[in-house]
Design a protein around this nucleic acid. Structure first.
Length: 572
RNA sequence: GCGCCUGUAGUGAAGGGGUUAUCACCUGAGGUUUCCAACCUCAUGUCCCGGGUUCAAAUCCCGGCGGGCGCACCA
């Protein structure tokens, strides 16, 4: 499956053509950081643009944008600081790495409160052995924090912060604003695209594990008791699913999304909805559908916040790679942020189908009497009256106050009343379904699946069969020759096409026409327009299709209309 | 972080203690050319970084950085 030579040739091409390159290369490069070059940046932008349009088209999801620098308390509440500060130690014999606090469990009541010196002490004094090789030689334990730390502000007043390890927290921070924006009605969602940061121990495999990466995340807030209706019967494609890895040992099955929901393979229908929409997106940007599968997380690899989680994996030269994670985070995040921030605005209101009416008899205080009578203690009396669980049979009676003293309540002080309390609904913490996309990984697989090595007249010939929606340019204009006014006509046409909104046109006039076709093919430009001698006479040009090199002739005016409406393919 | 392998123009490679480091493709200029990496002339551009050994280091040694693979890690 892994063809290292093909990876090398593809990587060399990506570098040579300015698509994806190592970052900071003149200073030796930095592992886990990459650049998108002049061609790659266009591809990246279009993939992200497609992603945003894919989710916002129905109007129930909006785009937001929040800071990458995140104060520490936000990430304490989300669990990232705790999860990321574990002490790690390594066996000097077999190099296995372990969480130090887990090794000393049983030798200390609260191992996660220990600092590294204490934990090293226990490791050696108790001669704790390596679970792998049973030797007892440990390296000094070190905190492993996978977040990039930074400070907000300078000197004494500075505040600990981290570069965000995910964009999701930004959506949770904006929940109150989103709730108002959507007129206080669930379900709704928010998306955000942007950079995320994880200080990986060993970034590997080119674009697959990066330290700074492009993420695209959606948080979809739902009422767990009234989840959105899901009907996926339109999609009849059979999808590869690997459910319940703890049960039947990773058995891959193929069924439609609707069947998977109906048969409880996918337990949460909202999760199923997003699996399906994820599949649609990936196919739309050029991922080969036969190289997509969904795998349910095993319980032990589930993130600390997730209840049910499916990975979308894509097959490429690096094997099956997790490119999208779809998790039911339940109410974990919003609830935790409410607790840590003391805010009460991370909720939603659920109206009951019928208003619950509660009739209750109370002793309504006459404050004009109670006030002068009890003075400073009047407040306590009022509270005690309100909290009475059972009304006294007769008046006067003795009322116990919260300070332990008793007062006598007489008929003049209160009035027996019936109150009618109607309860229309209740506050609850919404659940959230989160599809999280690794954009760089997806771009890698788009390139991988689009990269085709062929032969042309005995020569190696490579091209990127990118979908039009993610190609770095829509068309390229090529004058057959620079002379006789063809170059001039080509430049005029190029600028005319570039004036069309959303259309990007390139122009190339150096070297032979064959070489220029080859260059355009290699960066995946789907259409090449050639200006030749005939063009100067009758205002026609030839249009060449990248994928089969077929050419047809058309009038420039007609062509401009077709480009504008994204319909060039109808010419063929 | 550990182990093994590795680093030479934009890309891919050859070579290697001693004159000016080699080749192909690519890129640029000019010429030629009536549609698929053609041809001719010319040109730009390279030994990852630092230290050591040596009369002399791109070459040998050490360290760093980068890359590949395996182990571990990947909330």
């Amino acid at each position: 499956m892994t063809d290292e030579k093909r990876i090398e040739r593809l990587s060399a091409m990506l570098k040579r053509r300015g698509i994806v390159l190592p970052a900071f290369e003149i200073y030796g490069g930095v592992s886990g950081l990459i650049d998108y070059g002049p061609v790659g940046a266009s591809i990246r932008r279009r993939v992200i643009q497609n992603w945003i349009e894919h989710w916002t088209i129905n109007g129930d999801i909006v785009e937001i944008d929040s800071p990458t620098i995140t104060p520490e308390n936000v990430l304490v509440a989300s669990g990232h600081v705790g999860e990321f500060n574990d002490l790690m130690t390594q066996c000097e014999n077999c190099s296995s790495a372990f969480r130090a606090d887990q090794l000393v469990e049983g030798f200390h009541p609260n191992p996660d409160t220990l600092d590294s010196e204490e934990i090293d002490g226990i490791l050696s004094s108790e001669k704790i052995s390596c679970p792998n090789c049973e030797k007892s030689q440990w390296t000094l334990s070190k905190p492993m924090n996978l977040m990039f730390g930074t400070k907000i502000g300078a000197m004494k007043s500075s505040r600990q912060a981290y570069m965000r390890p995910e964009t999701a927290q930004g959506m949770f921070m904006l929940y109150p604003s989103l709730y108002r924006h959507f007129r206080q009605k669930l379900p709704f969602g928010a998306i955000q695209t942007g950079k995320g940061y994880r200080n990986e121990i060993s970034p590997r495999q080119g674009m697959i594990r990066l330290r700074e990466f492009n993420m695209a995340e959606l948080e979809y807030f739902i009422d767990p008791e009234n989840p959105p209706l899901v009907d996926l019967s339109m999609n009849t494609e059979k999808i590869s699913l690997i459910p319940d890895p703890n049960g039947n040992k990773h058995k891959e099955i193929k069924m439609t999304f609707q069947d998977a929901i109906d048969n409880n393979v996918i337990k949460d229908s909202t999760v199923g909805l997003f699996l399906s929409k994820t599949w649609d997106f990936l196919v739309r940007v050029g991922i080969n559908p036969s190289k997509i599968r969904f795998r349910q997380h095993e319980s032990n690899e589930m993130a600390h916040y997730a209840e049910d989680c499916w990975d979308c994996e894509i097959l490429g030269e690096h094997g099956w790679i997790e490119c999208v994670g779809i998790a039911n985070r339940t109410c974990h995040d919003l609830l935790s942020h409410e607790k840590h921030s003391n805010s009460s605005s991370l909720r939603a209101w659920r109206e009951f189908e019928e208003v619950k009416v509660e009739n209750r008899e109370i002793l309504s205080p006459k404050t004009s009497v109670l006030g002068p009578m009890f003075r400073a203690r009047a407040g306590l009396v009022l509270a005690a009256l309100e909290n009475l669980s059972q009304l006294p049979d007769n008046l006067p009676f003795k009322l116990e106050l919260s300070d332990g003293t008793n007062v006598e309540i007489t008929e003049e002080m209160v009035e027996k009343k019936m109150v009618h309390n109607s309860i229309a609904g209740e506050w609850f913490t919404p659940h959230v379904i989160e599809p999280a996309f690794g954009i760089d990984r997806i771009i890698w697989h788009i390139l991988d699946h689009a990269y085709e090595e062929t032969e042309k007249e005995g020569e190696n010939y490579n091209l990127l069969k990118l979908k039009e929606s993610v190609a770095p340019a829509d068309v390229i204009v090529l004058p057959l020759f620079e002379k006789d006014g063809m170059g001039m006509a080509a430049r005029k046409l190029n600028s005319e096409i570039n004036q069309i909104n959303g259309i990007k046109c390139l122009i190339d006039s150096s070297k032979s026409i064959g070489r220029r076709y080859a260059r355009a093919d290699e960066i995946g430009v789907p259409w090449a327009i050639t200006v030749d001698h005939q063009s100067l006479e009758d205002n026609t040009v030839t249009i060449r299709r990248r994928d089969d090199q077929k050419q047809i002739r058309a009038e420039i005016d007609e062509l401009l209309i077709l480009i504008n409406s994204n319909m060039i393919s109808t010419l063929f």
